[in-house]
Design a protein around this nucleic acid. Structure first.
Length: 337
RNA sequence: CCGCUCUUAGCUCAGCCUGGUAGAGCAGCCGACUGUAGAUCGGCUUGUCCCCCGUUCAAAUCGGGGAGAGCGGACCA
């Protein structure tokens, strides 16, 4: 995954696969990359009204895909959010509109992005009957496993077993060639591959982005419900404070915790998955006494410099906060309206 | 519907039997040390004790009612 973007241009395959954690399957992706023009990719989001760094990560991939020639569908999954106990249907639908505006502010090309409300088609008769057919194909245990990383609340509701089946069905109903999601979606997509052939639909091709590690510990996934996340409602000061407190050993491969839990370096992850995909060059401002400014036009040398000690974590953090703020500023302004 | 168990700090739980108005660990916050964070020291904070009614001088604790969660209710006698 070293990439040969020395000429600043990437071919379709590289645009599709850069910064992804996993692709299912490689052969299917290669087929799509051969003629991406007019192919359709989608991501579904439970409406939240305010974009956070997790949304932004898959949005970056959508931008890559648009650049590669894909058409993009963003599913504002109001019905899913409802089934996942996220509030009243009315509240959810209101936040769905705000979320759409947030995505546009973030940088999705408005003319090439189709926003679809789940309730626009998920309540149709034929959809419902197909959903029941999938219910017949799936055990409760399987549905529950698929939801393990997605569900909210402490107890499993029947609605949450229906949820992944609807995600599977959405793919053929939206006419999608590629399903995109974070790694927490992989079990849902695997379920879709297993179950859709049972109703004479194609098993979907999917692509999963990595999950950013918890900002303060580097262990586990960054959570928006608990702990620290970065979102479009953060002020510059809040971003500075959060980045300042972030876990950042001077390496890309931190030691596991005392309990043997794997850790990542979230500061580097955000540089890799959020900053470099959106900026041509990154300037790390540094006091003269430490050697003056550093300039990078891709991620790998920055990581190498941190590893070697040439780049101090404190300076890296300063730059990270600056660029994160630039990414968030348009959404923040949009929220202020 | 019936039965059993559970509900106390952000989290996991102790305390309840033998009433005297609340504790531990973890988390969090603050300082020291590091040119970041973490680790390591030092210090600190936190509560409608699920809700209502009752008994009592006094209820997290006893009694009654209610709510939520978990488990069970098959067969064979």
């Amino acid at each position: 995954m070293s990439g040969n973007h020395t000429d600043g241009r990437m071919d379709a395959h590289e645009l599709i696969t850069r910064n992804v954690a996993e692709v299912v399957t490689e052969a299917e992706i290669e087929a799509l990359a051969e003629d991406p023009e007019g192919k359709r990719a989608y991501v579904g989001y439970e409406p939240s009204g305010v974009l956070h760094i997790g949304h932004m990560l898959t949005a970056n991939k959508l931008i890559d895909l648009q650049e590669a020639g894909f058409e993009v569908t963003v599913l504002l999954a109001d019905v899913h959010a409802y089934l996942n106990d996220k509030g009243s249907f009315e509240e959810i639908r209101r936040t769905a509109e705000r979320m759409r505006d947030q995505f546009i502010a973030y940088g999705l090309e408005e003319s090439r992005t189709q926003f679809v409300l789940g309730s626009d088609f998920q309540l149709d008769d034929d959809y419902t009957l197909d959903l029941h057919a999938l219910g017949l194909e799936t055990t409760i245990a399987r549905a529950e496993r698929a939801m393990a990383e997605i569900k909210s609340g402490d107890s499993v509701k029947v609605s949450q077993a229906v949820y992944p089946l609807m995600q599977a069905l959405d793919i053929p109903y939206l006419g999608v060639d590629l399903a995109v999601g974070g790694m927490e979606q992989r079990k849902v997509h695997m379920l879709a591959r297993d179950v859709l052939p049972g109703i004479d639909r194609e098993p979907p091709t999917s692509l999963h982005t990595p999950l950013i590690a918890d900002l303060t510990t580097g262990a586990g996934k960054m959570s928006s419900s608990m702990g620290v996340t970065i979102s479009m409602e953060d002020s510059r000061e809040e971003i500075d404070a959060k980045v300042e407190k972030a876990y950042c050993p001077p390496t890309a491969e931190p030691e596991p915790t005392g309990e043997g839990i794997e850790r990542e370096n979230p500061v580097l992850q955000i540089f890799e998955y959020h900053v470099f995909p959106r900026f041509e060059t990154v300037v790390v401002e540094r006091p003269e006494k430490y050697g003056g400014d550093l300039v990078y036009d891709e991620y790998a040398p920055l990581e190498a410099d941190l590893e070697s000690g040439e780049l101090h974590p404190a300076d890296a953090k300063g730059a990270l906060a600056t660029y994160l703020d630039r990414l968030i500023a348009p959404g923040r302004e949009q929220l202020a309206e």
